[in-house]
Design a protein around this nucleic acid. Structure first.
Length: 574
DNA sequence: GCCGTTTTCGGCCCGACTGTTTTCAGTCG
């Protein structure tokens, strides 16, 4: 059983306990464990095979560990099945509607016998919901709107869509007089691959004016709440945006608080409490004197708690606070460490721009070298290069290198790993190239044993340097191929073949938890924008986000290596 | 149910906004 399925069961148990009116800390314990397991870099099945103790996982103790073992070994959980009999079926579904919590869901289930979203909609339409004690017509209207918005899809939005939207809004609001520090917080700032909503933080001389400007923006479809320091709106794209404003001098605590994640903040506040301090978005209050200390930046805020500054991407309550306390946080890779892009297409295959245009754009980004990796012949639809055209391209790159200053173009290919596991170009030409990326583009539905063998075959091919977008997933569109990741990582570590973090925002593949585990096992990683035009080179920041979430330091990522070190590695005897 | 440089028991983050409450409960992040 996969971690994601185990996490879903614990999440569901939390909902059921909540509906039962159980101790809210018990509810939170299950939620925390579910979250921990969901983002665990290693499969619990593998951990159990290796005899590891699950109680090492944050938020997992005696009881939840036992339940996880039962779940993995038998595929069922008696405690869960027992709980389900105690709550009318369908009630947990009501909790998914924003605005409905455990109290209202229980009331709807017990007093109106509602067991599902469709029934709830009917009950609202014939006026039964508005007559319940504690509810009214406005609540009923709100629930109705939320149901409709839920039906319109409104799932989590890939960060590649959300980030450009929020950057546009920040630019629009930048013209309001007296505004400062406008920054995205939340999961967007932590660089999660999808975001549930957008959190925007700022300070201003006149916060009300900023709030009014926001709700008047053409991006806004609906205003859900509007107060003097806070507003919540729904954008045209369907995503919710929260804007929060404080005094200029309090920005550090505001940004910290709304960057989260929730678990990180709870851990921080608990830590504060022990020191007699109360943390809030306004600052830190000394509980003895009642005096509020304010923080204009996050670094000072963390310092006040005796902690090193923790980068947003790793604020996930997964041990980062303990590391900050010992001043032992990793030196996370930054965009400025990147010296090259190792996965780029040109108009020789399915890209839009010439080799020279791509090279100039790369140079503008500060890169020192660049690998051109057009598709191989088998990708007929992408005008893939056969051996003859690839030799022509090599010569063309040599000519450009002679006349271009300041950047070195490396020859390369993104060669297809065919369904039978063979590569789409002969060994002798692969041997001539500087960089060989091998990727799967077809036969993605093969079963696990077969497709894992196929990828490991490519990993062990002495001409292959990098496996491109290893799992082939497209966020919110295409499921990953069924790889045994642990086996792939071990094979890559053994053969010292590099695994790519593909930085195209819809891919981000390897994803954060996979990159984390690969790094732990000593696998070297690369960043590739997979650019198909010059402006796509800027996708690199998404790859950096993944690498940072995976605790990668510069030396783990071969794009940070100087040319001499990189070529020595690529040409090593194998 | 978890967890421990105050603790193996007794705690467990904090504030804004809404709606229906006549003083606050519910929900959210």
């Amino acid at each position: 059983m996969k971690n994601s399925e185990i996490a879903r069961v614990f999440e569901d148990i939390a909902s059921l306990l909540e509906l039962k009116g159980e101790n809210r800390f018990k509810v939170r314990a299950y939620q925390r464990a579910a979250r921990s397991i969901e983002f665990l870099p290693k499969e619990i099945e593998v951990m159990l095979q290796q005899g590891e103790d699950l109680r090492g996982i944050a938020g997992v103790g005696e009881a939840i560990s036992k339940k996880a073992v039962e779940l993995v070994t038998t595929g069922r959980l008696s405690y869960y099945e027992e709980l389900q009999t105690q709550i009318p079926p369908g009630t947990t579904a009501l909790l998914e509607i924003p605005g409905i919590g455990p109290k209202i869901a229980s009331k709807l289930a017990s007093e109106l016998k509602i067991s599902g979203i469709d029934e709830l909609e009917q009950a609202i339409l014939n006026g039964r919901v508005a007559t319940l004690a504690g509810l009214g017509s406005k609540t009923a209207d709100n629930i109705m709107r939320q149901i409709q918005s839920l039906r319109r899809k409104d799932q989590r939005m890939p960060i590649g869509q959300a980030l450009p939207i929020v950057e546009e809004i920040i630019a629009d609001l930048g013209s309001v007089p007296g505004i400062r520090n406008l920054t995205a917080a939340g999961s967007l700032r932590r660089f999660r691959e999808t975001v549930g909503d957008i959190d925007l933080m700022g300070t201003a001389d006149n916060p009300k004016a900023v709030i009014q400007s926001l709700v008047a923006l053409p991006h806004v479809r609906e205003i859900l709440a509007q107060g003097p320091t806070k507003a919540t709106v729904i954008l045209l794209s369907g995503i919710q945006l929260d804007l929060r404003m404080v005094e200029h001098g309090q920005f550090g605590s505001l940004l910290q608080y709304f960057t989260g994640n929730k678990g990180h903040n709870i851990a921080l506040r608990t830590r504060g409490q022990k020191k007699g301090l109360k943390l809030s978005e306004y600052g830190i209050t000394d509980l003895q004197t009642g005096k509020l200390e304010t923080f204009a930046n996050e670094k000072d805020f963390y310092a006040r708690l005796g902690l090193a500054y923790i980068p947003p991407e790793i604020r996930e309550d997964q041990g980062e606070i303990a590391l900050a306390e010992r001043n032992a946080l990793p030196n996370l890779i930054q965009l400025s460490d990147v010296l090259c892009d190792l996965h780029v297409h040109t108009d020789w295959s399915d890209g839009n721009d010439s080799i020279e245009t791509m090279a100039r754009a790369a140079k503008r980004l500060g890169y020192r070298h660049l690998a051109i990796t057009d598709h191989s012949f088998g990708r007929g639809i992408a005008r893939g290069l056969d051996e003859k055209r690839l030799r022509q391209q090599i010569e063309e790159i040599q000519r450009i290198n002679q006349r271009m200053e300041g950047i070195r173009i490396l020859t390369g290919t993104e060669v297809d790993i065919r369904a039978d596991g063979s590569l789409d170009l002969p060994d002798d030409i692969l041997a001539e190239l500087d960089v060989v990326v091998a990727s799967i583009h077809s036969g993605m539905r093969q079963e696990q044993v077969k497709i894992t063998r196929r990828v490991i075959g490519a990993i062990e091919n002495p001409h292959v340097d990098i496996i491109g977008h290893p799992t082939c997933r497209i966020i919110a569109e295409r499921e990953p191929i069924e790889l045994d990741m642990e086996a792939v990582f071990r094979a890559a570590a053994h053969a010292s073949t590099v695994l790519e973090i593909n930085a195209t925002p819809s891919r981000m593949d390897l994803k954060d938890s996979h990159a984390y585990r690969a790094r732990e096992l000593g696998v070297k990683l690369s960043l590739g924008s997979d650019a198909h035009s010059a402006d796509h080179l800027e996708f690199m920041r998404y790859g950096i986000g993944v690498a940072r979430r995976a605790f990668c330091q510069p030396e783990t990522i071969i794009n940070t290596w100087p040319l001499r070190q990189l070529t020595a590695f690529l040409k090593r005897p194998r």
